[in-house]
Nucleic acid binder design. Structure first.
Lengths: 254, 254
DNA sequence: CTTAAGGGCTGATCTGCATCAGCCCGGCGC
DNA sequence: GCGCCGGGCTGATGCAGATCAGCCCTTAAG
């Protein structure tokens, strides 16, 4: 059986990559802009699940655009604890920050086998010079990434386990929907409960229990690599989810 | 008595603003670059402590550079809980993200009376066009802000109360030192224990207890608006503090 | 066929932190 | 003078979630 979160792997048309799809939701990209964008998708590479791509403390000038599969950026503490900062899905950048800060402050590991395209700092600057609107769009994407981390911080700091998990899974669903990999019904999700635990700052045991509660409340089901929203409206209400930070676009791009 | 965190207020020379001082730690700014940078410090404004500057959900195109005083960016949950995302000190940007995302996803309130200069998106783009190195420097500053939020997330998600507080106060100390407002001995700090609590995701009561423990362990003292590092080396060890995310500079600027 | 490893799931117990309740002190308006 | 309010500080109690210890199932390797 082909895992559906890999479906795009067989079917990436450059004209409609997840990145241009994501950006295209907000900016009507002109033909030339799409061309420049596609020009970034040159050096194609693949990585296998589980083997780190970037290591904390490593110097590396390259960033990547994720084309298919899921990745995970995390930080390791010296006592072995792990905090997942964010998961990346197709259309997201990997390690953009490592290009700016000399030392990567986090590690990145593919959750599934992934396909990426390598982007050097120079390529990006070139592209920006050609189409300023694209520069603004990428800057917007980076700001959105920061907003996601901020929302994540709020969840971990101030929401209880149930709300936190629900909010997190809703956010992923919204992001996936924007690139055509999810809907209000649910989405394919390759995360283990352990990874989920490291993301929301709980123990895996507790994640398991809370998922059961969410299921029993008829809100969502997390099973066999699939998230099902059993009652989308009630879930949004329960998690106090406000999606505006994910798809609002600023004045620079209007 | 003049509160020392306001000292700069009386003494801001444009040639040596906190922002250029911060950026200058890493990039040798040329005379013309400093001139462009100072050109940003035109529309000067002041705000009084406690009155919100930017409100969650508000549309606002202006960003600010903080010249003197402290500010605080936070998010409010509908049940009244508050999560402080970060404190801003002189040399930091306020609301840069609000310029890119149409709706501000957070609120900003001055902790003390503050002085800022207003920066419109257009000014910034102008400045970038004039000196690309400055653009890279500002981009670096934005990335650093994101790294700070990420580190904050790790603290809230995976560090216990003591480490978390110690790490947080150490980080503030390092940032203040870079703009000449702190040292390894300590710094003036206008935060109440309540604000601290909202930042590290604890209750004010517990913050109070943990501060006592840190004091009794001879690590640091938080009293009368002043943080004193009683044993800097031991504190860094205790909090597992690694400052590299605050002052490393990337290949783009070398 | 056997074994081992990873993931899901569960009950029992323990603990870090929240919550509630209250006191003390200094500054400020009346 | 008084009362009030914000901030610091403390003890008692309760609970959310960690930890420990285990069982089950599926997959893959030997």
């Amino acid at each position: 059986m082909i895992k559906s979160w890999m479906a795009l792997k067989m079917d990436v048309h450059l004209e409609n990559s997840p990145l241009s799809r994501k950006l295209g939701v907000f900016v009507a990209l002109s033909q030339s802009e799409v061309t420049v964008l596609n020009g970034l998708h040159q050096r194609r590479r693949t990585f296998v699940a589980g083997r780190d791509l970037v290591d904390q403390g490593q110097s590396d000038q390259a960033a990547y655009i994720l084309c298919s599969g899921w990745a995970c950026s995390y930080k390791l503490l010296s006592d072995g604890q792990r905090q997942v900062v964010d998961f990346q899905i197709p259309g997201d950048f990997l390690g953009l920050r490592s290009v700016l800060l000399r030392v990567s402050d986090h590690s990145i590991v593919p959750v599934t086998d992934i396909e990426v395209t390598e982007v050097h700092a120079a390529d990006l600057l070139d592209a920006f010079a050609k189409t300023p609107r694209l520069a603004a769009a990428v800057l917007w994407a980076a700001s959105r990434d920061e907003a996601i981390v901020v929302e994540h911080l709020v969840g971990v700091g101030r929401r209880d386990a149930g709300e936190r998990l629900a909010h997190f899974l809703l956010e992923l669903g919204t992001r996936l929907t924007l690139v055509g990999m999810g809907s209000k019904a649910g989405y394919a999700c390759p995360l283990s409960q352990y990874m989920l635990a490291d993301a929301v700052g709980l123990s895996a045991v507790h994640v398991n229990r809370v998922l059961r509660q969410l299921r029993e409340k008829g809100l969502l089901t997390f099973r066999d690599g699939h998230v099902t929203f059993d009652n989308y409206a009630k879930l949004i209400e329960f998690a106090q989810f406000d999606r505006s930070y994910l798809d609002e676009i600023g004045p620079l791009l209007k």
